[in-house]
């Protein structure tokens, strides 16, 4: 598969990082300055949307130079990320199935439901984050070898 046809231009990665900064600013603003619960809800929705868009743009953009070695790194990264993701998914599933509230009585039952919702919405993003982290680590290792 020629991944050059499905990856976005490198410029999109920079736009993605800008969106990530906006997400951090929104989260900080929500935590520090917003006291009205309705306004906080809107801030939360906006920050979640910017976070999802930033992850999408950062992870699915080309590097400055794309060649077959980079494509190889991408393929290996996806494989390792999938493996790590499913191990984490298994651990988290078991944790939720065992009913968090019964294991830790001090945690309110509402939190268990919240964790389930966060689980469903943000867990798929974890796969992208893992893939990007592993890919960047492989690139860094390769460039470090070049510098030696």
């Amino acid at each position: 598969m020629n991944n050059k046809s499905i990856l976005m231009p490198h410029t999109c990665q920079k736009i993605g990082w800008c969106f990530l900064i906006i997400f951090v600013i929104l989260e900080l603003a929500n935590a520090l300055f917003v006291h009205n619960i309705d306004v906080a809800w809107y801030f939360a929705k906006a920050s979640h949307a910017t976070f999802i868009i930033s992850i999408f743009l950062i992870c699915l953009s080309k590097e400055k130079v794309e060649d077959e070695m980079i494509s190889g790194f991408r393929l290996k990264s996806i494989g390792v990320a999938a493996y790590v993701f499913f191990v984490l998914f298994l651990i988290l599933s078991l944790f939720l199935e065992l009913r968090l509230a019964t294991l830790f009585p001090s945690i309110p039952e509402d939190l268990e439901l919240y964790m389930s919702e966060a689980f469903l919405i943000f867990l798929p993003l974890l796969l992208f984050i893992l893939y990007f982290g592993i890919f960047k680590w492989m690139l860094w290792k390769s460039k470090k070898q070049q510098a030696l």
């Binding site: 130079v65 060649d67 077959e68 070695m69 980079i70 190889g72 390769s142 460039k143 070898q145 070049q146």
Partner: peptide, 16 residues
């Protein structure tokens, strides 16, 4: 060749 310098270096050092 149409690749990155990093790739040539990796080929020469036997890493790729």
């Amino acid at each position: 060749i149409g690749v990155s310098r990093n790739t040539i270096n990796s080929i020469e050092s036997g890493k790729y």
